[in-house]
Each structure stands twice: as C-alpha cells, then as structure tokens.
C-alpha cells in the first residue's frame, strides 16, 4: 500500500492561515491503514487546528469527513456539496488523492496534510518500510523476492557495498542491508548460484526516466472516460 505520514502541525497551520472555513478530508484506504489520514486522524488534526486557532483568537470552522478513496472519481463526486461550502480543502490523502481532488474541483484550493513516503507495509506495529520502488520492471524473481532496488540504499544489483555491517546498512544502522536479506534468503532456498550472474545496467526507461508513467489498457476503455487522458 501507499505509506504516508502527517506533516508537522505548523506547516498545516500555515496552509490554513488565511482561511476561516475549510474541509478536512480523510481517505479511507491506504492512509487509514497506515494511520496517517483516516477518519481518526481527521478528528485529531481538526481538534488540534481548532485549538491552535482559538488560542490565537482567530477561530476556524472545520468540516470533517472521510471518503473511501480520494483517488477515484466516483468517491469524489459525493463530497462536492461539502467542498462547495468551504474556502479550501486540506486533504489527508496521499499525493495522488490530493491531485485527484484538485482535478475534480478545479476552482478550489486544495492543500496536502500528509507527506507521501513510499510503497510498503508495516514491518511491525508503528514501523512502515519501503519494499517497492515501482520501477516498472519487476526483477524479484532473481533476488529471492527481496527487492534490491527498493531495499538496498544504493539500489545495487550485483551484491552489497562495503558499507554493509552486521547485516545493517551504512545509511542507518537500524535498517537491514537489503543485500544481506537477499543473500540469506537465496542461501536458505539453495539458490545462491543464481546470484553469480552479472546483471547488466538496469533499463530505467520503465521507471520515471521515460517521463510520468501512463499505464494503458485499451481493452477496458469505455466511451466518455472521466478525466480521460487529461
């Protein structure tokens, strides 16, 4: 899923500074699961903003709501009446949701309350880790299903760097060395031999390097697609 975390309150406050009435809109999917922008977080952030504004003698009215997904048109349509009522929307979705809101409501100011960090999962309660970089050409089959692009700090394809120590990364001693994970898993699966091949330079054209990616499925096109090709 998409992992995000809330921006510092000060930054969110400054976005709302000139507004008297806003909609604080949560998203019910990824960011709810990673406890960054779901219904609960909307409630907490709304209270914090109200309190801060009350203290400075400049009250703000906040409508709170959470929709199932801010990244799909059908869920955005239902929120239109509330959007109409306010000067601006602070979205607690990931960057995709924030931009979908902006596209759906072209005349409304839309601000982000979250920093979108990665594609990943909770490694344990309260710790989310990046496991996929969305490079567009999945090579997990070669690495025992542990991704070196996402989980090695340098995205190395042919083995660990010299900065790997005690199975940890030189960038952060609390983070696992991705290559040590790959090596140990391949060893366990008796597949170490597969790692002996020299992998050539990766073709990054399926990544961002070929421009913003568009995934096209003509077989599921229907006439009059909302948003279409933009």
């Amino acid at each position: 899923m998409i992992i995000a975390e809330q921006k510092p309150l000060e930054e969110i406050r400054s976005m709302a500074a000139k507004h008297k009435k806003i909609l604080l809109l949560g998203c019910g999917t990824c960011v709810t699961v990673c406890m960054a922008g779901g219904e609960k977080e909307v409630g907490i952030l709304a209270s914090a903003l109200r309190m801060a504004r009350k203290l400075e003698g400049n009250r703000i009215e906040i409508i709170e709501d959470t929709i199932l997904r801010q990244c799909e048109w059908e869920y955005l349509e239902e929120i239109a009446p509330k959007v109409d009522e306010v000067e601006a929307v602070i979205s607690m979705a990931c960057g995709v949701g924030v931009q979908a809101m902006a596209q759906q409501f072209p005349d409304k100011l839309i601000y982000p309350a979250l920093n979108t960090t990665s594609l990943g999962m909770p490694a344990q309660h309260g710790l989310w880790v990046e496991n996929c970089r969305g490079c567009g050409n999945c090579g997990l089959a070669r690495f025992g299903a542990v991704c070196p692009v996402a989980r090695c700090s340098k995205s190395l394809l042919n083995g660990p760097c010299g900065g790997s120590q005690d199975g940890k990364c030189e960038v952060n001693p609390e983070a696992d060395c991705g290559w040590q994970l790959i090596y140990e898993r391949m060893e366990r699966l008796d597949q170490l031999e597969l790692l002996e091949d020299i992998l050539p330079a990766k073709n990054w054209s399926t990544d961002r390097d070929n421009g913003p990616r568009r995934t096209v499925r003509e077989d599921v096109f229907i006439a009059d697609v909302k948003g279409g090709t933009e």
Binding site: N158, G159, P160, G162, S164, Q180
Partner: peptide, 13 residues
C-alpha cells in the same frame, strides 16, 4: 567484513 559470504560474492563478480 563480518558477513563474508555476500562480500565474496561481490568480489567474484
């Protein structure tokens, strides 16, 4: 290196 196996893999490559 403390994890020699993976380092020697790189060395061979």
């Amino acid at each position: 290196a403390d994890r020699m196996g993976s380092q020697l893999l790189k060395f061979r490559k």
